[in-house]
């Protein structure tokens, strides 16, 4: 019963992402698109975390190491750009994504990646020293 609901849910998500469902195996392309969005957001989170760690570690004094909430939010927002760039490039260089996912799916995928990226960044900032940068 649960498996059936899961299948129906996934199917509707795939339909939401795929603009052109006339091509055979459109489900595979749509699924790959979703996986790509997840991977891109995780990679970008990793990238931004490493960048932030280096910036903080390089700070020569206490003042420069203290990040205000607004600075942290701006930094997270800056991470949207690589997410956008990588997602667009991956979409552009894959014929399946261009043909099946289409421009509509691209925009939905970017939005999805941004959401995941924001969520992962907030989770990362929920623990340890960085918690005080935003919460």
């Amino acid at each position: 019963m649960f498996g059936m609901y899961l299948f129906q849910g996934l199917d509707s998500i795939l339909r939401f992402v795929a603009s052109n469902r006339d091509i055979d195996n459109w489900q595979d392309a749509a699924f790959n698109w979703l996986i790509a969005a997840v991977v891109i957001s995780i990679v970008c989170v990793g990238l931004m975390v490493v960048i932030k760690f280096i910036i903080k570690q390089r700070a020569p004094n206490i003042r420069r190491r203290v990040w205000s909430r607004s600075r942290t939010i701006v930094f997270i927002l800056v991470g949207f750009f690589p997410v956008l760039l990588i997602t667009s490039l991956i979409w552009y260089f894959s014929r399946d994504f261009v043909n099946i996912v289409g421009v509509g799916g691209l925009l939905k995928g970017i939005l999805f990646s941004w959401l995941l990226y924001t969520m992962f960044m907030l989770i990362w900032h929920s623990f340890g020293e960085w918690r005080r940068d935003i919460f």
Binding site: I62, R65, V66, W67, S68, R69, E129, R132, D133
Partner: peptide, 8 residues
Amino acid sequence: ARNWNNVI
């Protein structure tokens, strides 16, 4: 002070 990190 809540923004101060572990350096202080």
